[in-house]
Design a protein around this nucleic acid. Sequence first.
DNA 1: TCACGTCCTTGATATTGATCAAGCCTGGAT
DNA 2: ATCCAGGCTTGATCAATATCAAGGACGTGA
Lengths: 232, 232
Amino acid sequence: MRDEDLQEMRQLPLFDGVGAAYVDSLLRSAFVQRFPAHVELVHEGDPADFLYVIVQGQVEIYAGYRDRETTISVLGPGNSFIIAAVLLDRVYLKSARGLTPTRILMLPAEAVREGFAEDAHFARALAVDMALAYRGVVKELKNQKLRSSLERLANWLIAEDEKGGSTGKLEIPYDKKVLASRLGMAPEVLSRSIAALIPYKVDIRGRHVQLNDREALLSLARPVPTIDDPAC
Amino acid sequence: MRDEDLQEMRQLPLFDGVGAAYVDSLLRSAFVQRFPAHVELVHEGDPADFLYVIVQGQVEIYAGYRDRETTISVLGPGNSFIIAAVLLDRVYLKSARGLTPTRILMLPAEAVREGFAEDAHFARALAVDMALAYRGVVKELKNQKLRSSLERLANWLIAEDEKGGSTGKLEIPYDKKVLASRLGMAPEVLSRSIAALIPYKVDIRGRHVQLNDREALLSLARPVPTIDDPAC
DNA sequence: TCACGTCCTTGATATTGATCAAGCCTGGAT
DNA sequence: ATCCAGGCTTGATCAATATCAAGGACGTGA
């Protein structure tokens, strides 16, 4: 790994609270790889040989069943996948592909497990990551089971706006078909739900979104911290 | 805590791989409580003051949104809830109530976090628990997003039969309305789905279930390890 | 034994979402 | 500039699920 890459990798959130010497030791067996867009990085059902950390680009985590497919999440720089499979030495439950060209840090699973067994700080960092990831999926499961498609879209828009500082303007960060899949609906349903938000002063043109009456949208969306607040 | 309780608590899966001296130290600040059925043990949104471990009885983990409610899981003896909230010192994302009378070990959250910070074995045990819990909820999210109600029921029956040794006979372990909620459907839909399984030689009377043609049901259910196998 | 509450099933209807089809729009390649 | 593939929208139709209603079954308490 090149020195400039090494310096960059040391800053990754995965290594928060972990001793620098130990991080370097882990990184010695790792490498950074570039992938073009659309390439499948991880295949559901495969043994977990690597822990992946996104250095650059956007990765879609998805899963299939028979001829169906759904997007579980879309991850960006600093995010890792899939810690649980690596820790437990089991197969990946999900697949991953780059939505854009990507640079990915690949940590051999063996090295991660050794680190887990030997370095208590690293073990704790992984536990905390696991706990946060778990809570994220619980919130998503609740979102799916408890809300309609329209409610999920409205809440996603509110949350995405808040991420950007509640300016009332946001960009949908990927194709609408990916957003539809991520929110658990067909693309046609997303189109219709977007149209259904027009009375709530939501203006969507292409990927550009403008929320012209935040209170109106909030009265429809009715977010709750235990589903919608990433910091909760 | 009474000595006989103490002995019993030491055997809990949560403490696998953790030194006996440390377990005893943790248990010194804990207590075992009995609750009648239906009592709410944990309320969604409350601060996580305790880690709960079921010693006896059956607990329904559920969540609500506006006037809706869904069952996330039903847990039995040996299972704990809710580790992630305690570890991160955040609110509970879910509620819990006993479906039956219960005996619950209550570990103060503070003590658990201290244990996590001080005892590397305990930290690793919690990390592994977290990884397993994470994978479980990912499978459930996939189950919800990728399958119809009928598919979820068929697969639940197959999995429940396998838990009991694949005898072809099983007992639904709680009220059907809880099973319906757990599988993400209204009770009426569960009734209709049960009736729809009659051509597949599934015989359900009350809580008694008999699978008279496992292959037929499997051809409908089409289980995959990455959703249905708890050991995967 | 009786009364009552809750669970469950069945029927009917409404709503939500999926699927199929068609055509427009847009960005990339030539 | 032109062509083409894929994304997206809209219309139509179908399927799945929710909701409402009613009545029977069953277990519990008196």
